[in-house]
């Protein structure tokens, strides 16, 4: 499992060596000691101008935006998704609209977002929500539609209201599926987070990468990319483990299908 990673590192080291032997100041593929120094500087030494530890400051700023955006999108996705999947009237009214909404490329309507929500934190969070919520709505609606209709019919026969069915039959079965949708959306959420920070920001992981790109400081950009990748993998792994522990019946059901 580790072999491809090792080979990638070796390929990088060789490429870096070739370029640095030709130009010791080359910025494109810095050597490992240079990368190490940059990590030291960004993560463990206060910045000369502001006195902040830049990597941590950027990480906190980005994770705030990401978590609020993802939380709101998940809430919207679950509520609208269950309503569309369960209630025929809502389905008829909303499903086409959501399908169309999901197809609008959020980055193409950026000026509208800016003028409506300003250039602050709100616009960045809205971009993330706009980027992933429609997908989650559609996904949850489809998953609700997949529930055996016998369950619904039986509940109705026993006199359950729509609210009861949503709360007692559908939602408990949706939790692990919401986690699935969340895992699939996280990559996209990161994409929109970084795009938002590239456009207007004072801190954040994407802000730093796009700022330093202006003078090709790959010694800082590469560790930032590795850090973002690590965080994303960590979240994905945590969600997966949480799903298995909290909803063991779901994992069993999935493997027996």
């Amino acid at each position: 499992m580790l072999l491809p990673f090792a080979l990638l590192l070796i390929a990088y080291a060789v490429g870096s060596e070739i370029r640095l032997s030709d130009n010791p100041n080359d910025k494109l593929l810095p050597s490992f000691p240079t990368l190490y120094e940059a990590v030291q500087r960004m993560a463990f030494e206060p910045d000369k101008r502001t006195g902040n530890y830049l990597l941590w400051q950027d990480t906190v700023a980005s994770l705030m935006r990401l978590s609020i955006g993802v939380l709101v999108a998940t809430l919207m996705g679950s509520i609208v998704g269950i309503a569309v999947g369960l209630i025929p009237y809502v389905n008829r009214t909303m499903s086409a609209f959501i399908s169309v909404l999901a197809m609008i490329p959020p980055l193409a309507v950026l000026p509208i977002l800016f003028i409506t929500f300003g250039l602050g934190e709100l616009a960045k969070i809205v971009l993330i929500v706009f980027g992933i919520a429609p997908f989650m709505m559609r996904d949850i609606a489809l998953r609700v539609g997949e529930l055996p209709s016998e369950q619904i019919v039986k509940a109705q026969t026993l006199g359950a209201s729509t609210w009861h069915i949503a709360w007692r039959i559908v939602l408990p079965q949706m939790w692990p599926r919401i986690i699935d949708a969340l895992r699939l959306s996280l990559g996209t959420a990161w994409l929109f987070l970084i795009a938002a920070e590239a456009i207007a920001a004072q801190s954040g992981l994407g802000y730093r990468i796009f700022l330093l790109r202006r003078y090709l400081a790959m010694d800082v950009i590469l560790p930032y990319v590795a850090w973002i990748t690590f965080l994303a993998v960590l979240f994905d792994y945590t969600l997966q483990k949480f799903q298995i522990i909290a909803f063991p019946w779901f994992a069993v059901g999935r493997s027996s299908e």
């Binding site: 000026p111 003028i115 929500f117 300003g118 602050g120 456009i199 207007a200 802000y207 796009f210």
Partner: peptide
Amino acid sequence: LTVVNTSDADMIAAFQSEDV
């Protein structure tokens, strides 16, 4: 003052937003 990094492509839209 405070400098806010803003992409040139979005500068015109940015100026129209109230907080800029």
